[in-house]
């Protein structure tokens, strides 16, 4: 593994390695001295083309706990016309000997582009790209789910997966990088994923995803999920005619007090409620649900540091000569026989 760009191509073996390593990192987070020397002398650049204080400080804390040097680079306004191109920025970071670039970008695929372009030799970690993926968010969600699932089963978390766990992901799937990364990763880990949202906020092509799709949240809850992940409704969607009004959205797809009560009625004592944050209280999630004992919101934040430590450690700690298995990106597979329709 040279880069962490998506969960779509993350093998089970690598996913478990990340989660198991994160368990050890979590233990470090509970000690008095929360510092490890593993990445001493390594430089991690947080290259953020979008504001996201939460994700940035999580990566920053992770890198610092591993003793890496951290450079924060806020690079908003990235278009060729407005400022420096991604290429020039990348080459600048290369000249500064960055060992890893943690990139957050409004354009889907920007991290993949950075990793495959040859502009930079550093490991690339996707910290959220457009409406594509947010792999470390999915890893921290999976980490949180796995600990819960192991606790319910009365077993240990390390080495285990999510076989049999039923997870609902609710809201704006179309524009959600969190949803995409979770669908692939949770499926890889053996969970049964159901997406719930208004049809306008489910992508064309979702029928090919390894999950179930429903439009009715109450029916989905009646199917006894083990976890309900509520997605944030972005402000810019609210006025774009994807649904009639936020009130109607909230009534049909929000996790409100009635649905919180329904979990009790259904006898779902172990079902947790997740949210990647920041929350729109009263819109996609009620205050009571957000603050209930079922809520894993703060555990998710805490686990984010552990998971990012694991990712940084596994990508950076080893020698640079040890990546013979790193996929060489064949830029132009157009004529490969499988891509060609039979005639």
């Amino acid at each position: 593994m040279k880069h962490l760009l998506s969960t779509h191509d993350l093998a089970l073996h690598d996913a478990l390695r990340l989660l198991d390593t994160a368990e050890e990192m979590a233990a470090v987070g509970e000690r008095e001295i929360k510092k490890l020397p593993a990445l001493r002398g390594r430089t991690v650049v947080n290259l953020f083309y979008e504001d996201s204080t939460r994700t940035r400080i999580s990566f920053e804390a992770a890198a610092k706990r591993l003793s890496a040097d951290v450079i924060n680079f806020a690079a908003k306004g990235s278009s060729v016309s407005k400022g420096e191109s991604l290429k020039d920025t990348a080459q600048t970071l290369e000249a500064m000997s960055a060992d890893a670039v943690v990139i957050r970008h409004p354009a889907s695929g920007a991290p993949a582009r950075l990793a495959a372009s040859g502009w930079i030799d550093a490991a690339v970690l996707n910290a959220g790209d457009g409406t594509h993926e947010h792999p470390t968010q999915a890893l921290l969600d999976a980490f949180t789910l796995r600990r819960h699932w192991a606790k319910v089963a009365g077993t240990g978390s390390p080495g285990s997966d999510l076989t049999g766990m039923r997870v609902l992901i609710v809201g704006d799937i179309l524009h959600s990088r969190v949803a995409r990364s979770n669908v692939w990763l949770l499926k890889t880990l053996g969970a049964e994923v159901t997406l719930v949202g208004p049809p306008t906020l489910l992508p064309v092509g979702v029928d090919t995803w390894p999950c179930t799709v429903r439009y009715n949240l109450d029916e989905a809850l009646a199917d006894r999920p083990d976890a309900v992940m509520m997605l944030r409704l972005q402000a810019e969607r609210m006025n774009a005619a994807f649904f009639p009004s936020t009130r109607e959205y909230s009534r049909r797809w929000g996790f409100d007090d009635a649905r919180l009560a329904a979990l009790d009625t259904l006898g779902l004592g172990d079902t947790v409620i997740m949210h990647p944050g920041p929350m729109n209280r009263g819109l996609e999630i009620s205050a009571a649900a957000a603050d209930s004992v079922r809520s894993t919101v703060l555990a998710q934040v805490r686990n984010g540091v552990s998971v990012r430590m694991a990712a940084l450690y596994l990508l950076l700690a080893g020698g640079t000569h040890d990546h013979p298995a790193a996929p060489t990106v064949r830029e132009n597979p157009a004529l490969s026989p499988t891509k060609e329709p039979a005639v």
Binding site: T131, H132, R177
Partner: peptide, 11 residues
Amino acid sequence: GEVSAVLGLTG
């Protein structure tokens, strides 16, 4: 279609 859904690129 299927690919745009995965890539998160506007269809």
